[in-house]
Simulated assay, not measured.
Amino acid sequence: MRLYLDHLSDWAGREPESHLITADGTEPPVFAFTCPGRFGMNTISGFTYGLSLVPHPEWHLGSPELFISMDSDNSDWVLAAGYVASAWRGKERYSAGDVFDLGDPISPDESEMSVLLLFLVTDLEPEFTRIELPGGVVNLVQLYPMYESELALLQEKGAAEFLSTEDVDFHDPRRPPLNH
């Protein structure tokens, strides 16, 4: 984990704040690392670690870890990424287009968004998203928060077209929901 954390620290300019997501004694544990302010004041970014340590038969070119970035200073967004990493690991493939419905708002003070869409990373340099570690390659993938009411539109358009909707800032927790 040290090499992974060093990689994140180089990007963040300091060591990220660590949050243990899984219960004590869970092996391997899942952590979420928060990096406030990397994309400006009142922004939060975060990464998971521990998802990639539980194998999945569809992972051939590396194992995923999750990244999220929001225009917020609330760590709930990063903790939600940690929850997604721990709740479905070993079961889901964590591939582009996968959807994780948390059932409740991620950050209730800011937004009613309760779903996380996993897709390619748009906020990081491509060379940063592939991390070679002694245990294998880790590929970062990004989570994009969305409203449950947007699921039909996502299904109709597909993830790439949905995330390419003009004049929509998918980092804004207060953005209005897209209509179908």
Rank of each mutant, 00 (worst) to 15 (best):
E132Y: 02
T122E: 15
H7T: 14
M113H: 03
L5Q: 15
E58N: 13
D167V: 02
P16I: 13
P28G: 06
P36Y: 05
R89Y: 10
P16Q: 12
V141W: 07
L151N: 05
L178A: 06
A23S: 13
R89V: 08
S9F: 06
P173D: 01
V141F: 09
T122M: 07
D172L: 02
V115P: 03
F47G: 08
D6E: 15
A32N: 07
R14V: 09
Y144E: 06
E112N: 10
T129N: 05
D172A: 02
P55N: 07
E17D: 13
Y49V: 02
T22P: 10
V78A: 03
S114H: 11
S111L: 04
L51H: 01
S72R: 01
P29K: 07
G37Y: 09
F119M: 07
S75F: 05
E92L: 05
S63M: 07
H56F: 08
G13R: 11
E156G: 00
A85E: 07
E125C: 00
P57W: 09
L117E: 02
A96E: 14
A32C: 08
D24Y: 13
R174G: 01
L140M: 12
N179S: 12
S45D: 14
T48H: 03
E58F: 04
L102M: 14
L66E: 03
D24W: 11
V30F: 08
F39N: 08
I106V: 15
P126V: 10
L61S: 14
V115F: 09
P28I: 05
I131V: 13
A32H: 08
G97F: 10
H60I: 10
N74T: 06
N74M: 00
T165N: 00
P36T: 07
E148P: 01
T129H: 10
L154V: 02
P108S: 09
H19T: 13
F47M: 09
T22W: 11
Q155A: 13
G103T: 07
A80Q: 06
D98W: 08
L178M: 08
Y83A: 04
W88I: 02
S69T: 14
D71V: 05
R89Q: 10
S63F: 03
W11A: 12
S63H: 10
N42T: 08
L133F: 10
A96V: 12
D71Q: 11
L66F: 01
L53K: 11
S75D: 15
F67L: 09
S63P: 00
P64G: 00
G103L: 07
F119Y: 15
A152W: 03
R14H: 15
S111M: 06
A96Q: 09
S9N: 12
A85P: 06
G37K: 07
F67V: 07
Y144D: 02
D98N: 15
L118R: 10
R14S: 15
Y49A: 09
F47N: 08
K157P: 00
E112Y: 04
I68K: 04
A96K: 06
I106M: 04
W88K: 04
E166L: 06
R130F: 03
D169K: 05
R89W: 12
E110I: 00
L79I: 10
L51E: 00
D76R: 07
S111I: 01
V30N: 05
T165I: 02
V54I: 15
I106Q: 01
D104I: 14
T26S: 13
R89C: 05
Y49R: 13
H19N: 11
F128R: 13
S164Y: 05
L118F: 06
I106D: 03
N42E: 14
P28H: 09
I68N: 00
E15M: 10
S45G: 13
D6K: 12
